[in-house]
Design a binder for these strands. Structure first.
Lengths: 243, 243
DNA sequence: ACAAAAGTGTTAATGCTACACCCATGG
DNA sequence: CCATGGGTGTAGCATTAACACTTTTGT
């Protein structure tokens, strides 16, 4: 499901296999971007227009069938690369959806969510640019299947995880000011944070490395920081630290 | 995989289908129990002895193939009932495992974890009592497939969730004393908790309803409490509150 | 009376929040 | 020199942890 291949597809069409459960992998891909006319950046995600039967014409999460020789995570990375041309800075399994009536054929969808860096989302072109577009996560149209719910859950997970991990780094370039880091937090959480307290919290976490460079702008220059690359952005699940 | 049906099974044997990815559902089922000779209860889980090819003879998580007309959660409940004869007091999706080399045939396993109440684990008999046994979660033998890792992750999730939800109730009968509730927390977390502070924390959460009954024992009687049934034990994922 | 668990009170330490304040730069 | 964001200091408040203390029962 949730792919350009179509849901009620191959297995039944051939006629050899009466009914099988197929496995699909989809990915909710987040980045931040300054939309035209807005002073603050927004959380945006790419969607793919469906060109086949169920929900034809509606927008859906990028995804595809699980290949026989690729792991779930590899399948997620692959469809992510096909739609954005990028490698994710963070990739984590979200949930497996398997309700019987999700789709005309029986499909179990393993959904991942990912972060890509804003500065990387410009250059590469997707394989099929016509049917790929980026949407503001806060104001999505009606999506195919149960994808609105899935995006809501991914956003909930992102907001949750930003509170107890360094995951916000996945949306920033190598070097950044504390104000830029704080802006990412603010956009994800949907509220303003006290600059003074934010600085202390993030400094005391010990994962920030100050550089000797400064971002010079309209006012007092701000020190640039980078993250300690030896520390993982967040706990990604059972296959991560625990293995 | 992880079932009495065997992993490298049906699809290939028939010869009609060259290669398909099959979907299995397994469940890590926790309860507490006072093992003989121990003063404090332990976290235990049921395992099923494999009677077929991959890992024959080893213990594995109860599970089975996903039926065409059942949801993932229904499949988990079904295999749970087949091995324990019980309905779970709590059931949540844990993770989807899909590495290519997990099993000889290509299998994606959706794993759930569940809590059942201690007082309910005595009466019913499993369908195949010979090949079902309960093990102390703290000292498991080598299990089939990657099931040791999976149990470790489920234990991590249980410990984590006990800190911010009322999930411990899933291991207790309707009425219980604060000492009994605290003992559940202590066994899961593996450390002693201050009775005075525990009482205040749990009382201030507002989910405990004091009854007029008292548990009379060797010393001062302790008031019995029950949980507010209108409040969910914990957030179970995207299909729960969010839908 | 005494042991032991039930239950209450108190205090120190910690962390978070709000906000006053100084610093450095471009215009 | 002033507006603005960078950066520091500090006091109030809530939460937590440690532990002394009182209450109530069975023996």
């Amino acid at each position: 499901m949730m792919t350009r291949t179509g849901e009620a597809s191959a297995a039944i069409a051939t006629g050899t296999v009466a009914e099988v459960t197929r496995v699909a992998v989809s990915t909710v891909i987040f980045t931040t971007r300054r939309l035209e006319g807005a002073d603050r950046p927004a959380v945006v995600l790419p969607l793919v227009r469906r060109t086949r039967d169920p929900y034809e014409g509606l927008w859906a999460l990028p995804g595809g069938w699980l290949g026989l020789s690729e792991s779930l995570e590899e399948a997620a990375s692959r469809t992510l690369a096909e739609t954005t041309g990028l490698a994710p800075s963070y990739l984590e399994q979200l949930y497996a959806f398997g309700a019987v009536d999700r789709s005309p054929a029986r499909v179990v969808s393993i959904v991942y969510w990912a972060l890509v860096r804003e500065d990387e989302t410009r250059t590469p072109q997707p394989e099929d640019p016509e049917n790929v577009a980026w949407f503001d996560a806060a104001s999505l149209p009606q999506l195919a299947f149960d994808h609105n719910q899935i995006v809501d859950y991914a956003l909930w997970r992102l907001r949750n995880k930003v509170g107890y991990s360094r995951i916000a780094h996945g949306l920033l370039p190598d070097e950044f000011t504390l104000a830029e880091l704080r802006e990412v937090y603010e956009v994800i959480l949907g509220r303003r944070l006290d600059p003074a307290n934010f600085r202390r919290q993030v400094e005391s976490s010990g994962t920030l490395i100050p550089t000797q460079s400064f971002r010079t702008g309209s006012h007092r220059p701000a020190r640039l920081y980078r993250y300690d690359r030896d520390v993982e952005l967040a706990d990604r699940g059972p296959l991560d630290a625990r293995q």
